[in-house]
Design a protein around this nucleic acid. Structure first.
Lengths: 202, 202
DNA sequence: TGCCTATCTGGCACATCGTGCCATCTAGGC
DNA sequence: GCCTAGATGGCACGATGTGCCAGATAGGCA
């Protein structure tokens, strides 16, 4: 075997993704409340007990799919050394959301379907909100770490602006069928510029 | 009897608030998962079955307390006839959050305690996010109704900016002990100005 | 005043949820 | 080839959320 992670570790990761994709497929077909954990576990080929070792609730199971990308652009900000914070965030958004390979584009299109189901189901919407909320919290810590003397309220506001720029962009992108939709990457970057333009002290 | 609502209707409202306050008190004392529906129902003087006629889950029980005010400033926007939409939203925020009576101030201080417990508990945080998310949705519809020809994406962004200005203000206000904290009303209005300053087309 | 109906309430049953506990099996080091 | 750590599965159990039915009460009508 070549790389670092052991066989056991890779199996665990594969099982986690299998469960997540099984859950996403079932949630796309029926209402969340009509999908039992037993069904998800069965579709993923694991026992109920094992399901609960990977996720706390059945709704949580789609978190890995919804959170794809979030980690990426946040570490990009953390590693960026640009002096201009707003510029750094804007660049991180553009760099991370930009998709070069066809594989990436396919993954994004699957995410679009999941996001549509997510926005129409109370329970899944709660997961989407949690993912974004936690993303905002991490971003807040990142900004505070880079600007220790900044006004804490301005830090909160900037973190909210960045998170919302991406969140609203994705929600709109998932909701609209129009083929002439502006490229999500450009739109998210523009939205962040608009929201953050008036924030002073950063 | 004087006013419109019947005795039955007023009793229901009283029961709902009793449950909500009993839940808030218990949640402030212990972790959410260590509070059973049986305990809340008992503290509120109703049966478990009746509890579930008022709320779907135990966490939901605090929704009426967290959503106080949200309805207020949204109807203020709906009824406002100002041509300038951003100005109307800013005025609605100021007018609704402004507290004249001592009673209002006491209620706000209780909300502060509840909000602190809310931000430190996963389950309650989810309720807070849902309340804000639904508030954003309603605001989005309000804006779209007032500006039918506006760019749908700009509408989403403006609704998000207004909701976040208030949400972040309250979260910061609840988190900080400092007595010199800027008045929440002024701060929310300023935050909305900052976030919405760069949004074009509205 | 006395009845009637709508509905609010409570108790019971039941499927499902989420977790603690223990037995079994497999990966990977010796 | 053996041995230990950890992943998995089965079982039990308290808690959750809802359908169903019966008793109690508000408020309209004769």
């Amino acid at each position: 075997m070549a790389a670092g992670p052991s066989l056991t570790e890779r199996r665990k990761q594969a099982t986690l993704l299998e469960i997540a994709e099984a859950a996403a497929e079932l949630f796309a077909a029926r209402e969340t409340k009509d999908v039992t954990v037993e069904a998800i576990a069965g579709a993923a080929g694991v026992s109920i007990r094992t399901f609960y070792r990977y996720f706390q609730t059945k709704e949580e199971a789609v978190t890995p799919l919804l959170a794809i990308g979030a980690r990426g652009w946040q570490t990009a900000i953390a590693e960026s050394s640009a002096a201009d914070l707003r510029g750094a965030i804007g660049e991180a958004i553009t760099a991370t959301l930009n998709l070069d390979s066809d594989e990436d584009r396919q993954a994004l299109e699957r995410t679009r379907g999941l996001l549509r189901a997510t926005m129409q189901d109370q329970r899944l919407a709660a997961v989407w909100r949690r993912v974004n909320g936690e993303s905002e919290e991490r971003l807040r810590d990142l900004i505070a770490a880079r600007k220790p003397d900044a006004d804490p309220f301005a830090v909160r506001l900037l973190a909210a602006a960045a998170t919302d720029a991406i969140r609203v962009t994705f929600e709109h992108w998932a909701a609209v069928d129009d083929a002439s939709v502006v490229d999500p990457v450009t739109r998210a970057a523009t939205a962040f510029d608009q929201l953050s333009a008036g924030i002073d002290g950063l």
